[in-house]
């Protein structure tokens, strides 16, 4: 029983948790959400540009998109965040006078997720049947409007589950920005748990942080499964026999 008690004390010290949870609500949760949502939005914009470059007929554009994607997908997130966070903050300081690494944290997360989202969009757009572009162009639309009005909207629909998965990854990866040394008011869920654990010498604040992450990510995971299932099965379809056949006139009996 000693061991069990010890484990309970280490991971489920209610007092230690109770102390850290209010701060997680007031500071950690908003910061995690701000980091994930803003980087998600910027990353989606970057991803769309990368996807369109990646499928364009312009070879240099394709090449730039390819190199960007390969590098940012090929690096460990922790390295990207450190390099961008520390590397660009002096420039940021000169330009804006701000010493906060927060914008750099968002930039690093956006650039990283942009590379992944770009690949998601590209695969979605390329999976749209070629006949869609052909039919749109046959109506007299140029390449740009055809993509914008017909091809891209269909491509995005197909990759919604993958996009939500990417957002889940972003929520988790936002924890890595603790390495940049954020101000107390800028700290997200993980760092608040980490600080508290370091002070109390108890791991329960980490467990509290874990619960916060799970409350965010588990419903999203199920949401993904739900969209996925719904897209696979589709809405119930009702096919009808071709009742009204020759309509305009009598037509050929061929």
């Amino acid at each position: 029983m000693d061991i069990l008690n010890q484990l309970a004390k280490t991971f489920f010290d209610w007092e230690a948790m109770g102390q850290v949870i209010p701060k997680m609500f007031t500071v950690g949760l908003p910061n995690t959400l701000v980091l994930a949502v803003i980087s998600g939005i910027i990353g989606t914009a970057i991803g769309m540009v990368l996807a369109l470059m990646g499928i364009s007929r312009n070879a240099p554009a394709r090449w730039v998109a390819r190199v960007y994607t390969d590098i940012l997908r090929g690096l460990p997130p922790v390295l990207t965040i450190l390099v961008i966070g520390f590397g660009f903050s002096p420039i940021m300081r000169q330009l804006t006078g701000s010493t906060s690494p927060y914008p750099m944290a968002i930039a690093a997360l956006s650039l990283m997720s942009g590379a992944y989202i770009g690949e998601i969009f590209r695969s979605g757009i390329q999976s749209v049947d070629k006949g869609q572009l052909e039919a749109t162009r046959a109506l007299g639309f140029g390449y740009g409007p055809s993509m914008r009005l017909v091809v891209v909207p269909q491509g995005i629909r197909r990759v919604l589950p993958a996009l939500v998965n990417q957002f889940i990854a972003l929520i988790k990866e936002s924890s890595l920005v603790f390495m940049l040394g954020l101000l107390a008011s800028e700290r997200e869920i993980f760092q608040i748990g980490k600080d508290s654990a370091a002070n109390s010498g108890n791991l329960s604040p980490y467990v509290a942080a874990a619960l916060f992450y799970l409350v965010l990510t588990v419903p999203l995971t199920h949401f993904v499964n739900w969209i996925d299932a719904r897209m696979r099965v589709g809405r119930p379809e009702k096919k009808e026999p071709d009742d009204a056949a020759a309509v305009v006139g009598k037509g050929a009996q061929s």
Partner: peptide, 29 residues
């Protein structure tokens, strides 16, 4: 693009826009 506005084309696989209604398919252009 101007030329294709003067020539209508119908395809083997119909190529209707699945994310739009029937009326929207016709009214888009």
């Amino acid at each position: 693009d101007e030329l294709r506005r003067r020539i209508g084309m119908v395809f083997q696989q119909f190529n209707l826009f699945p994310h739009k209604t029937v009326a929207e398919n016709v009214s888009l252009a």
